[in-house]
Design a protein around this nucleic acid. Structure first.
Length: 275
DNA sequence: GCGACAG
DNA sequence: ATCTTGTCGC
């Protein structure tokens, strides 16, 4: 029971023309669902260290959530020449229960807006090796915050029909409701609204948030917020809730951090076939 | 034409 | 993303 495409017709094909890629993204955006349709509540997601408790403070955690802790996966890529290394880790209660990786040749260069056609193949190859069935997947990059509302997280979510969240380190498009050049305290959420750069939905639609998962106490140093957006089957606010629930003292949520280091490890292995 | 642009 | 030394701060 591995994760294979449920919608083969949406698999990112790097041999398509740019116009065809964009057309495919519009089709994806039409079937993408930026509403909650997942089996877990953010409150039931425990980070490393805090195991589920039975007091009544975790209001939205159901009995089932406590019995079957949600599985949260993180995906990240590293590159070696013309090859992409995709790493996936699956966490339960903040602990890694599975990790897989795959290596695929990159067929096209990085083009803003078409990232899934460069990295998608390696990511899907890695998912085909995964045995766990994650409740939600954190993908490095944008989801709905995309020119055609079909960023990497959305593309992967639709192809595998799994709930996904896009976690990016910078803003691809859209208009923050407040300047992102200021220093904000931890927990700050700034809505990102669609503007003229998002051609598939009405201006003003909230397509994601800038989320300050970490911030320095006082110095003249500051940390930029993460850019979080729905991939598929998750709403903008829940996407932010999930990232906040999986953050554990660092800017990046744990699933993403762990996938990050695993990708580096897998990359080292590609450079050193001996190990 | 110019600017902007996840990883 | 990747190439990289030093440096600031807890």
């Amino acid at each position: 029971m591995t994760m294979d495409p449920v919608r083969p017709d949406f698999i990112p094909d790097p041999s398509l023309s740019q116009a065809e890629m964009e057309a495919l993204q519009r089709d994806i955006a039409e079937v993408a669902r930026f509403e909650d349709d997942l089996d877990v509540s953010p409150a039931a997601i425990a980070s490393a260290g805090d195991a589920p408790d039975d007091d009544q403070t975790t209001l939205s955690a159901s009995t089932d959530d406590t019995t079957n802790p949600p599985l949260v996966a993180g995906v990240d890529q590293a590159f070696v020449d013309d090859r992409a290394v995709s790493a996936i880790v699956v966490l339960r209660n903040g602990e890694v229960i599975e990790r897989v990786s795959a290596v695929e040749r990159t067929e096209i260069p990085y083009i803003p807006g078409l990232l899934s056609f460069r990295e998608g193949g390696a990511i899907l190859a890695a998912f085909a090796e995964l045995e766990a069935d994650p409740d939600v997947v954190l993908v490095d990059g944008s989801g709905r915050i995309h020119f055609r509302e079909a960023g990497l997280a959305t593309h992967i979510g639709i192809t595998l029909d799994v709930p996904t969240v896009g976690v990016a380190k910078s803003l691809l498009c859209g208009a923050p409701e407040q300047s992102l050049d200021e220093t904000y305290p931890e927990g700050t959420r700034i809505p990102i609204a669609a503007d003229d750069s998002v051609e598939t939905c009405p201006d003003g639609t909230v397509i994601g948030h800038a989320l300050q998962t970490r911030q320095y106490d006082s110095p003249n140093r500051y940390i930029n917020p993460l850019i979080v957006s729905p991939g598929h089957r998750v709403s903008a606010s829940t996407a932010a809730d999930i990232v906040e629930a999986t953050a554990d003292g660092y800017k990046l949520p744990e699933p993403t951090r762990v996938a990050d280091s695993y990708a580096d490890e897998a990359k080292a292995a590609v450079n050193n076939p001996s190990e």
